[in-house]
C-alpha cells in the first residue's frame, strides 16, 4: 500500500484549564444545582473542519502564524491528538520530529537516552546496536556519550535528539521546526541529512517559518490560519499569498483570540 494521509472534516477542541479547575470538589458540586456553572473554562478549536489528502511523493510545507494550528496538525496526524470530530487516516510508518529532545531523561547518560528515545518511537530494540555508533558519530558526541545528559549543553542535546530521530528512514516524515539550537556547522549538516530524508521518505509534512527552505524543498504548500486550511497549492503561489493576505494583510487585525468558541462548564 502506498503511504497516504487523509483528514476528513477533522476538528479538535482544546480546553484551557486554570489552576484549580480539575478538582474533585467541583466535580461533586456540579450535581448540586445551586453551584452549577460555578466554574468556567475557555474552549477553542485548534483545528476546524480540516480536509486534507496527501499522497505518496508529496513534500508538503505547512506555513502560518504562531497558533495557526500547524503543530497541532502534525500531532493529530501522528496520533497524539485524537480528533473530536471527523477522522484521521494514515497509512505508512510515521516518524514525528516534534520538539526533539525535550523528553530526555537528564539523569541518565546519552547512551541510555538513545535507547529510551528509540523504543519511544515504537521501534524494536535489536537493530539498535548496529545503529548506535552511527547515531553517536553523527551527533559528534563520542567523548560524552556515557555522561549524564544533565551535563550536556543544549546544542549537544539537540544534536543527539536529531541524530536518533533521523537514523531510520520512515514512509511518512513529520517535521516541526527542529533547528532551533545547535551551532551553524551542525545545522548545516542536519539540513543536509533532512534533505536526504525528505528525498527518500515517501511523504513529508514540513512545518517551518523559513519560507526560503519551504520553497526549496516542498512541492506543495498548505497555509494554515486559525485552525483551518486557508489555502493549499503550489509553493510559488502560496508563499506570496501567505505574505500578502495573512502576514501583511487585513487578517492580521483580528488575530487574537483565535477561534474562541464559548465559555461555560464542560464535563
Amino acid at each position: 500500500m502506498k503511504p497516504h494521509v487523509k483528514l476528513s472534516d477533522t476538528t479538535l477542541t482544546f480546553s484551557m484549564y486554570g489552576n484549580s479547575s480539575a478538582s474533585l470538589k467541583e466535580w461533586f458540586l456540579q450535581f448540586t444545582s445551586a453551584k452549577r456553572n460555578h466554574h468556567t473554562e475557555l474552549t477553542f478549536n485548534a483545528l476546524k473542519n480540516v480536509n486534507l489528502n496527501i499522497d505518496a511523493g508529496e513534500v508538503v510545507g505547512v506555513i502560518g502564524l504562531n497558533g495557526a494550528g500547524k503543530s497541532t496538525l502534525l500531532k493529530t496526524i501522528s496520533g497524539i491528538y485524537p480528533p473530536h470530530e471527523g477522522s484521521v487516516n494514515v497509512a505508512g510508518s510515521v516518524t514525528p520530529l516534534i520538539e526533539l529532545g525535550t523528553s530526555f531523561d537528564i539523569q541518565l547518560t546519552g547512551r541510555e537516552n538513545i535507547l529510551i528515545n528509540w523504543v519511544m518511537l515504537g521501534r524494536a530494540v535489536p537493530p539498535l546496536k548496529e545503529l548506535e555508533s552511527q547515531i553517536i558519530e553523527f551527533a559528534e558526541l563520542q567523548e560524552f556519550i556515557d555522561m549524564p545528559v544533565k551535563y550536556y549543553s543544549s546544542g549537544m542535546v539537540a544534536r543527539l535528539a536529531f541524530s536518533i530521530a533521523t537514523a531510520i528512514r520512515p514512509d511518512i516524515l513529520l517535521i516541526d521546526e527542529v533547528f532551533s539550537t545547535g551551532d551553524e556547522r551542525f545545522v548545516e549538516k542536519a539540513i543536509s541529512r533532512m534533505l536526504q530524508l525528505i528525498d527518500s521518505a515517501n511523504l513529508v509534512l514540513f512545518v517551518s517559518h523559513n519560507l526560503n527552505m519551504v520553497k526549496q524543498v516542498c512541492n506543495r504548500v498548505i497555509v494554515m490560519h486559525r485552525g483551518s486550511v486557508f489555502a493549499d497549492g503550489k509553493p510559488e503561489e502560496m508563499i506570496p499569498l501567505y505574505l500578502d493576505s495573512i502576514v501583511h494583510g487585513a487578517e492580521r487585525a483580528n488575530l487574537v483570540p483565535a477561534g474562541v468558541l464559548k465559555t461555560g462548564m464542560r464535563t
Partner: peptide
Amino acid sequence: MFHMAQPVMTDVYLSHGFRDP
C-alpha cells in the same frame, strides 16, 4: 554514514477519534 534500512513496521491508522467504538 546514513542508515537507509526500510522501517520494519508499516501501520495503518484510522481514527474517528471520539466516535470510535
